[in-house]
């Protein structure tokens, strides 16, 4: 793995000089672009470009049976596909632990913050609305979690709500907007040597010792996930949470602008 070592040295060398590959600051995102309604057949959809990372989220809304432990609540089903066309390191096959973690972290933030108000999704006995959130990674260059959360939230915020009439789901015609309960975003940081950077790209993720994702709304941290072998001190973690609250104002602003709110 000669090439990996060279990249690793290069990244660490830059960080020691206080800079990054693209000259970004330690706490800066790459350019973010959100396009909503990219898949009109899906009830909600959004494509997020975060630098070269490109994630498409499609939201389908249907009718199903409630979970036995929550007979009055709607369902949320989140999955992620690390498509083989997104990176030379992704292969065809069943979901990898990486893909499962990605889907579950995005799901937890959305669920905990009640972006989807499941308690309002009861139709009748044994029938509730269910929301499928599919994350499609089209190009990988680090930080899937933030791009994924952003695409999912943008897709939900811009979704249309089907109607249920006479045992049938009506997906076309004049439909209202899906009613969202909250807006969240996440911030992911990578620890590389002694530096901590926001929004790691692919090379930085390959060189990182540890990763932490913090998802929050205006008032609360809603989900967190630490990843990779290294560690963060308590102090570092608290500082990062503080930074995340500051940064997330910007991210929520981008999201609201993208969905025209």
């Amino acid at each position: 793995m000669q090439i990996r070592t060279v990249t690793d040295d290069f990244i660490k060398d830059l960080l020691m000089k206080g800079t990054r590959e693209d000259g970004r600051g330690m706490g800066a995102y790459r350019p973010i672009n959100i396009a909503t309604g990219t898949i009109p057949n899906a009830e909600g959809s959004a494509t997020v470009d975060m630098g070269h990372t490109k994630v498409l989220c499609g939201v389908k809304i249907g009718v199903g049976e409630p979970m036995p432990d929550k007979p009055k609540d709607g369902n949320i089903i989140t999955s992620a596909e690390l498509l083989p066309l997104a990176s030379p390191h992704y292969d065809i096959g069943p979901p990898t632990p990486e893909a499962i973690e990605f889907a579950r972290v995005v799901d937890r933030g959305i669920r905990a913050a009640k972006v989807i108000p499941t308690e309002k999704m009861f139709i009748e006995e044994e029938k509730v609305w269910e929301v499928y959130i599919d994350l499609y990674v089209l190009n990988y260059d680090g930080n899937l979690f933030d791009a994924g959360t952003m695409s999912a939230v943008a897709a939900i915020m811009s979704a249309r709500m089907p109607k249920y009439e006479g045992e049938k789901v009506i997906r076309e015609g004049s439909l209202g907007k899906f009613e969202t309960g909250n807006v969240i975003s996440s911030c992911t940081y990578a620890k590389i040597g002694n530096s901590i950077v926001l929004d790691p790209d692919g090379n930085e993720e390959a060189s990182m010792d540890a990763r932490i994702t913090i998802a929050n709304d205006e008032n609360y941290v809603r989900a967190m996930q630490k990843g990779a072998g290294g560690s963060f001190t308590f102090k570092e973690t608290e500082e990062l949470i503080e930074k995340t609250f500051e940064k997330s104002k910007e991210l929520r602003g981008i999201l609201k602008k993208a969905v025209g709110e």
Binding site: I39, N41, A42, S45, G58, V59, K60, G62, S79, E81, P84, I92, P94, Y132, D134, Y136, V169, R171, E172
Partner: peptide
């Protein structure tokens, strides 16, 4: 040549499709 054609589970106007 290896080739994979796949439809996204959200690609149709009807029900959510199955992946795989």
């Amino acid at each position: 040549i290896k080739c994979r054609y796949q439809m996204a589970p959200f690609s149709s106007l009807e029900e959510h499709g199955r992946s795989g």
